[in-house]
């Protein structure tokens, strides 16, 4: 049973407290996911707020056929890519370079990833190409199924599987022998 969908149903029936549950459950994770695309926590917050406001403005767009989390992450990803397109900034991140986290990103990481081990993996994941990073994030950090991750990324299950396989190979190189135990 999808708790998010249950909360949203209650919200549609008039229980405004149910929306608080949705915010508490998904907001920080959504910001964390979007931040992987836009690399700015404040912008990621902004986009996540827009995605959640869509739940209120366009109440009939969510058809309950996917989990609420999947739906929110789909909207978040679309809006993040829209933002990037409008900003017209091209970020090229090479595997050998690591972009330092800002203080806000560090704070967000500590809120979302309470485990130091996961934080170490996250820092390596951020060096991966965008699609691989998104696939690892959704499967390992957000505990989505392959099908749910495929829906968010608008790919099929096989493509997600391939991305994860390649991502693991790259992470082994990035994390080294000591880090391999973290995977």
């Amino acid at each position: 049973m999808d708790n998010g969908a249950c909360s949203y149903r209650r919200f549609l029936d008039g229980d405004e407290d149910a929306f608080d549950e949705i915010m508490n459950e998904y907001f920080r994770s959504l910001v964390f996911f979007i931040d992987g695309y836009v690399h700015d926590v404040h912008t990621a917050e902004d986009i996540a707020i827009d995605a959640l406001s869509d739940l209120i403005v366009h109440k009939h767009r969510y058809n309950f056929k996917v989990t609420l989390k999947t739906y929110l992450f789909m909207i978040g990803k679309s809006r993040a890519l829209d933002f990037i397109r409008h900003r017209r900034v091209i970020d090229i991140v090479e595997l050998s370079e690591a972009r330092e986290l800002s203080d806000d990103e560090r704070e967000l990481e500590e809120v979302v990833l309470s485990d130091e081990r996961r934080r170490a993996v996250n820092r390596a994941v951020r060096q991966l190409p965008e699609d691989m990073r998104a696939a690892v994030h959704l499967i390992y950090f957000e505990d989505m199924t392959y099908d749910e991750a495929a829906r968010v990324m608008k790919k099929n299950r096989k493509q997600v599987d391939n991305l994860l396989y390649r991502a693991k190979k790259e992470l082994r190189l990035l994390l080294g022998e000591d880090g391999e135990g973290l995977l």
Partner: peptide
């Protein structure tokens, strides 16, 4: 980073604005 309460207030504020704009 904003608190969850601030973000929630912002969600409802933007929703109202979008609904008014549509009307």
């Amino acid at each position: 980073m904003r608190t969850i309460d601030e973000c929630r207030a912002e969600v409802f504020r933007r929703s109202e604005e979008k609904i008014k704009a549509r009307r």
